[in-house]
């Protein structure tokens, strides 16, 4: 608890907290606005030029589509925050001060992780609230029926999407923390993480589509969508994606945690 609270003191500083939440609200608003305002565009209104029609948006699940489409961007925010908060302990030299006060290194990592997890929870919550409010606000302009959005099925679907997006955000965050511990530099961790998950994986998936079945970024987007994203085929099921990506991330976290426990802190 002490470790959690100490880390939270750093995360709650206004520039970081409100800056991140502001970014989350802005990108969610952008994604949801494009979804509704480009509904008749030939260029598509969703990821990779996909078209999501009025009929699809009018379903009970329609209220959650904008939110789940923002998951990748929430993942970037989580990856950056987890990686930066971890790696900067090395660059600032503060890790030695932390370890003098809490020598149980694995506990230190767990406390930091949980605290950053709370931060990630807030980003997902802000994104969910923004997407739902904006969906209702833009439904009139886009002529989308909202009758099904107020049913219990819609709210259950929204809750499931919330959990899935939260799980995927934690996944991206864990990858960020692992990179931060391995590379010990915020810039390297963020650039390599974002570069791999959002650029290299996309190229690999386009060049050889079955590779997406085993790439962590692709698997996390399946988890965030609660299965194959709309318009995407040839991807593993939700449970397969969840098991595969959980196994990968858990293994990476365990190996990195072991290394962190044993490694000399010489900087």
């Amino acid at each position: 608890m002490r470790i959690f609270r100490a880390e939270w003191r750093k995360l709650r500083r206004p520039t970081l907290f409100f800056g991140s939440m502001g970014a989350v609200v802005a990108v969610t608003a952008l994604v949801v606005s494009l979804l509704f305002l480009l509904i008749d565009s030939d260029m598509g209104n969703a990821d990779r030029g996909q078209r999501i029609t009025r009929d699809v948006l009018a379903l009970p699940s329609g209220i959650s589509i904008g939110f789940s489409s923002s998951a990748g961007l929430l993942g970037i925010v989580a990856l950056c925050v987890f990686a930066a908060q971890t790696a900067q302990e090395y660059t600032y030299g503060t890790l030695r001060s932390l370890l003098v006060r809490e020598p149980r290194r694995i506990w230190l990592l767990i406390g930091k992780y949980l605290s950053m997890g709370l931060f990630a929870f807030f980003t997902v919550m802000f994104s969910a609230i923004t997407s739902v409010l904006l969906a209702f606000a833009l439904s009139g302009i886009a002529k989308v029926s909202t009758d099904a959005w107020t049913t219990s099925e819609a709210w259950t679907n929204l809750f499931e999407t919330f959990v899935n997006v939260l799980v995927s955000t934690f996944g991206y965050g864990t990858i960020g923390m692992v990179l931060g511990l391995l590379l010990r530099s915020p810039i390297s961790s963020i650039s390599i993480g974002v570069g791999w998950l959002f650029i290299v994986e996309s190229i690999l998936s386009i060049a050889w589509s079955p590779s997406g079945n085993w790439l962590p970024g692709s698997l996390l987007s399946v988890v965030a969508s609660g299965g194959a994203p709309i318009g995407v085929t040839d991807v593993p099921s939700y449970s397969e994606a969840f098991i595969r990506v959980s196994a990968m991330i858990t293994a990476a976290a365990l190996v990195t945690g072991f290394m962190f426990k044993r490694r000399d802190v010489a900087s």
Binding site: A6, R9, G93, T94, S97
Partner: peptide, 27 residues
């Protein structure tokens, strides 16, 4: 034990007092 190793190391974006609060909370 109180210690300062290899010079001071704190978070630049936090105030001096807030830096101490982080350490105090942790310890």
């Amino acid at each position: 034990v109180g210690a300062m190793i290899e010079g001071p190391a704190f978070y630049p974006a936090l105030t001096g007092a807030e830096n101490l609060r982080v350490i105090a909370t942790l310890g």
